[in-house]
Structure formats: structure tokens, C-alpha cells
């Protein structure tokens, strides 16, 4: 369980995250949605101790993220942010293998190799495994990063817009993959999403942020509603029931 209590963050005079208290249950896939500038990414970075918080605390399975040592947390929780630019030239296998760093500190064991193989297979990277990252397309690179996070094999996996750069078919298989790892392997997946319909179809739980605050949370059935979405985004929405999923249109 991730318990976020009273977390705030400001950049200069702008309050970006304003006293958010929230608890994310263990297991399942949680999407965080909300308009631009709602503080979603900032909150996620603070949960993963990438960003110090001004106030409040984040506790993951009883571990306070600000105090616990980095490599202990790295075996519990992983994060992938958006816009990952590497200056280092690494091959896909190199990168994915570094997902095992928290366990083996760069001297991968046979068991680590298994993890690497599995992650590479999961994301369909077998043909690209010896290519350098700077020789890949944006979508291929994104999949390599996700493979590295999978390889880290943590209970909690945080993704900031994991569908960035992916085309429709890869987006769908990425969402399926993450939902399956939540369902079958008991992982907890938390992601910031922009596409409401992906959030609606794949999430067990949706968290809505607006203006740096927690606005609402609930199941897709609670959240994906005409009047609620229209209020969150300030745009007219229509919600349709299609094949058991709730689909929002907004054109």
C-alpha cells in the first residue's frame, strides 16, 4: 500500500501539489488523470523519491520514502518518467540488465539473466537486443525502458505517460501487458495517463487531480461520467457504454 499524506510541493511561488492525501491499494492498475498542470507528474516523482517534498510524507509498505535507503526502495518500487534522454550509448540488453542493478550491483547472476530474457521477450525486443538505444525509434526506445522497469521486478511500478511515442497497436499491447502483470503477478501499477478511454478500459482505480489537489477517486464506473469529466476538463463530454466499457467522446 502507498500512503500519501499531506504532500505539498511548490516551485518558487507556484504551488504545484497542494496537500494531497491519498492511499493507493496494493495490487491492480491505478490511473492518475487530470488536465495539464494538475501536478500528476510531480506527485508521482515525489512518491518515488525523485523529488523532495516540501511537506507531508509518503509511506510504501511501511517504508518512509524520504528515509529509507535508496537500494532498499529500489527493490520495492520503480519509476519510469517521460522524456528519457540518455547520453550514454547502451544497447537494449545493457539497459534492461541495469534493471537488475538493485539486486546484483552490476554483476548479473544466472537468475538475473532469466529476468532480462523474459523482459525482453515480453516487450517484443528480441530482434533489437543488440542495437544501441540511439539507433531505435521513439517507440522502440520507450519499450526498452519499460522492459528495464519490468526487469527491476518491484511490487510497485510507476509510469509517467508510458504510452508516449507508441502507436495504437503498441499502446494496446503495452496496456494489456501492464494490466496482466498487475492481475497475474500481483504487481501494483500506477500510471499517469492522458487518454481517458485507456484509463477507463484498463484501470481498476482512477485518481483525478486538478490544480494540485486530489479531486476525486473511484472505479472507472464512478469517474467516467458525462458530468464529472466535463467538470474536470472544462469541456463537453459524452460517455457511451460499448461492449461493457465506458467510452468518452469529446469532439
Amino acid at each position: 500500500m502507498i500512503e500519501v499524506s499531506g504532500v505539498s510541493k511548490s516551485y518558487g511561488k507556484t504551488l504545484v501539489v497542494d496537500g494531497v492525501t491519498l492511499s493507493l491499494p496494493k495490487g491492480g492498475l491505478t490511473s492518475i488523470i487530470g488536465p495539464n498542470g494538475a501536478g500528476k507528474s510531480t506527485l508521482m516523482s515525489m512518491i518515488a523519491r525523485l523529488l523532495p517534498m516540501d511537506a507531508g510524507s509518503v509511506v510504501v509498505d511501511g517504508l518512509d520514502v524520504t528515509n529509507v535507503s535508496g537500494d532498499v526502495l529500489a527493490r520495492r518500487l520503480s519509476i519510469l518518467r517521460q522524456d528519457n534522454h540518455l547520453t550514454a550509448r547502451l544497447t537494449v540488453t545493457d539497459l534492461v540488465t541495469f534493471g537488475r542493478y538493485p539486486y546484483s550491483k552490476g554483476r548479473p547472476t544466472l537468475e538475473d539473466r532469466d529476468h532480462v530474457e523474459r523482459a525482453i521477450d515480453y516487450l517484443g525486443l528480441a530482434d533489437l537486443r543488440h542495437r544501441f538505444l540511439d539507433e531505435l525509434s521513439g517507440g522502440q526506445r520507450q519499450r526498452a525502458f519499460v522492459a528495464m522497469v519490468l526487469c527491476q521486478d518491484t511490487d510497485y511500478m510507476l509510469f509517467d505517460e508510458p504510452l508516449n511515442n507508441l502507436d495504437i497497436s503498441h499502446s494496446v499491447s503495452m496496456m494489456k501487458l501492464l494490466r496482466d502483470s498487475a492481475r497475474d503477478l500481483g504487481k501494483t501499477v500506477v500510471m499517469v495517463l492522458h487518454d481517458i478511454n485507456f484509463a477507463s478500459c484498463y484501470s481498476d482505480h482512477i485518481v483525478v487531480m486538478r490544480d494540485g489537489r486530489l479531486f476525486l477517486q473511484g472505479t472507472p464506473t464512478d469517474i467516467v461520467r458525462q458530468e464529472i469529466l466535463s467538470e474536470i476538463y472544462g469541456t463537453e463530454f459524452r460517455v457511451h457504454e460499448l461492449d461493457g466499457n465506458r467510452i468518452a467522446t469529446f469532439y
Partner: peptide, 15 residues
């Protein structure tokens, strides 16, 4: 090598 991937990556990997 890990540090070469940046501060966020390093923190994520517990370095």
C-alpha cells in the same frame, strides 16, 4: 554507467 543515465535513473535503481 548508471550515473551516466542521470540522477532519476540512478535513484530509481537505488544508487
Amino acid at each position: 554507467t548508471v550515473a551516466g543515465m542521470g540522477e532519476d535513473f540512478s535513484s530509481n535503481l537505488g544508487l
